[in-house]
Design a protein around this nucleic acid. Structure first.
Lengths: 219, 219
DNA sequence: GCATTATTTGAGGATGGACTCAAATACGTC
DNA sequence: GACGTATTTGAGTCCATCCTCAAATAATGC
């Protein structure tokens, strides 16, 4: 009579009092940390409850099963990321490509923990891929818009290609700065340099005052 | 009475006949595929045996436990990666930075499945991190050596920084080319372009015929 | 062919972790 | 303070999965 796979075992049972709402926050925070650290499968419901200072019964009051915890986290992360990217273009109006490159870098570094947690959530769940793809689409669109604000003549498709490259470059920087991925000490600066060089090269022909001095040296 | 954690439950019991050796190959291949697809935790021993066309008892004859399967895979992947990087410098002798950039890119794309499998293996095993770091060290050293063959005056530390950047750039390209990570169609070429641009810029001052024409445009 | 040893098999034990639920407790309202 | 409802608790069930082992089978050497 019900759907088919394992949908909606019962009404999600949302918190109605402030204590409940706070508990949900604590539980989600604990789940986010643990799943980012250890991965989805390796994180147990008992651990989540324990780290949140709750007992397992409380966890199951607000989340029908483990999958629902993951879903809630995904929803939450995606929403925040979409907001950040949507707000990006507004800041990009009067910047040089180099400055934009640096701002993009720093923004994405800030977003690191959230993205890391998100990718851990995707670990063994091919059915959630479309959600991640949607988030990626928002990111690319947001960055591309910022690029076109900075370099008005830029073609839309090319802007998206460049945005995809920059987005992934930032992913790399996040990886470098993460404590668990040691690289040589100068590497993050080198990466920033590459990003500036690239954006400068790609955006130069389309800038407003396009005298194209081509002063290749970034310093 | 025994050690402490879960070491060496009994002698690993290696295959002595050709049938056994082949079975081990099949089992490792199956495990590699499954763990790369689904992750370490989500892959069951029964699945591994089934995909290899064996029964679970055979699996446990050659591997005392699931962890041993992962260890064997890690060993194997690391060894191959080390070989590839060690061989790299020899090919780099007479190349331009741009050509070297392209060769590096293609090499690392080839290595993609292996690296993906490796990172899946690291999923929930912080104790294996040092092994991965060692592999990364070999990769960086190999690429840095190739860079210094191509640009003899290059400082060792800087070469390693640049190598780290290039290595991670290649990781990005692998991600773009993976079927499960859709990006805009022009993105991979844009990434190659960025890599060429960066290496060209960084290596130009140190090249043998260093007239430094600074012909920024990569074409 | 026969003995020996490697390999295969699959039922079952042990364990861990997802999930349940009835009873106890805290909170909010009147 | 009393009532109703939200929340907490944690022992207990269930089941998936890791792993064992004794017996069957196949390969190898003589």
């Amino acid at each position: 009579m019900d759907s088919n796979t394992s949908r909606a075992k019962r009404t999600p049972l949302q918190p109605l009092r402030s204590a409940g709402r706070q508990r949900v926050e604590e539980l989600l925070a604990a789940a986010s940390d643990l799943m980012a650290e250890r991965g989805y499968e390796a994180t147990t419901m008992a651990e989540i409850a324990a780290r949140a200072g709750a007992k397992i019964g409380s966890l199951y009051r607000f989340f029908p099963n483990k999958e629902a915890v993951a879903d809630a986290l995904v929803q939450r992360h995606i929403a925040i990321l979409e907001d950040e990217y949507a707000a990006l273009a507004k800041r990009a109006a009067t910047l040089s490509p180099e400055a934009l490159a640096d701002i993009l870098i720093e923004l994405l570094v800030t977003l690191h923990p959230r993205v890391k947690s998100l990718s851990a959530l995707m670990e063994a769940r091919t059915d959630k891929m479309e959600i991640r793809d949607r988030a990626r689409g928002h990111a690319v669109a947001g960055i591309a818009a910022a690029l076109r604000v900075c370099a008005p003549g830029l073609d839309e498709a090319l802007a998206k290609d460049i945005a995809a490259v920059v987005l992934n470059t930032m992913k790399v920087l996040r990886g470098m700065l993460a404590n668990d991925a040691p690289t040589t000490s100068g590497a993050p600066d080198e990466l920033r340099r590459m990003n500036r060089l690239y954006l400068s090269d790609r955006l130069a022909p389309f800038r407003r005052g396009s005298d194209s001095a081509t002063d290749g040296k970034t310093r």
